[in-house]
Amino acid sequence: MSTTELASRSPGRLAWMRLRRNRVAMISAYTLIVFGMLAVGAPLIEMLYGIGPQQQFQHKLNSFGMPLGYAGGISGEHWFGLEPGLGRDIFIRMIYGMRTSLFIALAAAIVTTVIGVVLGIVAGYLGGKIDAVISWIIDLALAMPFLIFALAVVPTIALRFYGPREEVPTSFRVAVLILVFAVFGWTGTARLVRGQVISLREREFIEAARACGAGLGHILFRELLPNLWAPILVTFSLAVPSYVTGEAALSFLGIGITEPTPDFGAMIFRSLSYLQTDPAYVFFPGVTICALVLAFNLFGDGLRDALDPKSGA
């Protein structure tokens, strides 16, 4: 290996190489890709599987509404069995549910990261009054009990936007959830970025830019932002799973995505009470969501190690 080759490696490329070498992170990445493909390809899977997410099979339930047969009605036709009560197919609902959950989590993570980064940079660089105001808003947002506010606000919004005889489309509910996450979720990123910027702003390259008469926008987004990619990427990758869980927690309180739209959180919530009588129903969605979140967390951890070798193994 010649010295010139070594010298030509950018920090980004070095990080990529470190990530490639981390076996756990790569397994996680492949797992995530599989989950992603299942979610995106849900309609195709429905076609191949031959059963839709709203189709009911109540004749396969006993008089208590429990699926007949073994392990929650698992059969060649229903791979993961049937839901007690409504008698819908669990496998296809999980595929569609993953689609809903992943979309909400990704969108919420993007929105909160953007807001957090912008406000964090502004507060950290400008300091003074603006910093004080933004920091106070962060404190305020942290002091608000998130779940209680979500519980109060989410059901109300739909009533304001849709007439009493109009069905509220799922896309609107999804947008509301993303909005709620955005209002409360940006603070963490903002705090982190603000701290980083404070330590960067007195560095020579920023002073140099300032001395050259660079505009504020240029300094904030051309000079500072490129130096923040690593922590932002890591927070982003860890934010996605936290919104997957967050969305499930809202469903747990009955304010997430509602019937009949398939959704991971709602499914787990509904299944939990059947833990003793139909454990298979709890098992499939519960383990899948754990695997999904674990894969995200392991990948995020690997990414952190790759980008910031000092903290890693």
Partner: peptide
């Protein structure tokens, strides 16, 4: 630790 962080409390 990571497994713990990936679990849901209700589960």
């Amino acid at each position: 630790a990571l497994t713990g962080a990936s679990m849901q409390l209700y589960f």
